[in-house]
Amino acid sequence: MNKIMFFAHLRDRVGEESLTKDFSGKTISELKQMLEENYGLKLDSVMAAVNEEFASDDEVIQAGDTIAFIPPVSGG
């Protein structure tokens, strides 16, 4: 299984802090596309993090990975 985490406006839009579902074998890019279709999210300027490290769109999700979607940050 995979945990998918949302923050900031993505969390407001999805209505959940996280989803749990199996996406192993899919790329981040494919996951993004699915989320865009199912939740009407816009993810082109959103980075993904896999297990708390930024990941590129072609990274392949492994069983047990935690995926987070990171909109442009605004801390500081």
Binding site: A8, H9, S45, A49, I70, V73, S74, G75, G76
Partner: peptide, 26 residues
């Protein structure tokens, strides 16, 4: 690079701040 976000609250609304407003993160 640090995953922290701010939501501004004004008299006439609120918004999560990303690169669309004053900050250009990334």
């Amino acid at each position: 690079i640090v995953p922290i976000w701010k939501k501004e609250h004004w008299e006439d609304g609120e918004e999560w701040i990303g690169n669309q407003l004053e900050t250009v993160a990334y």
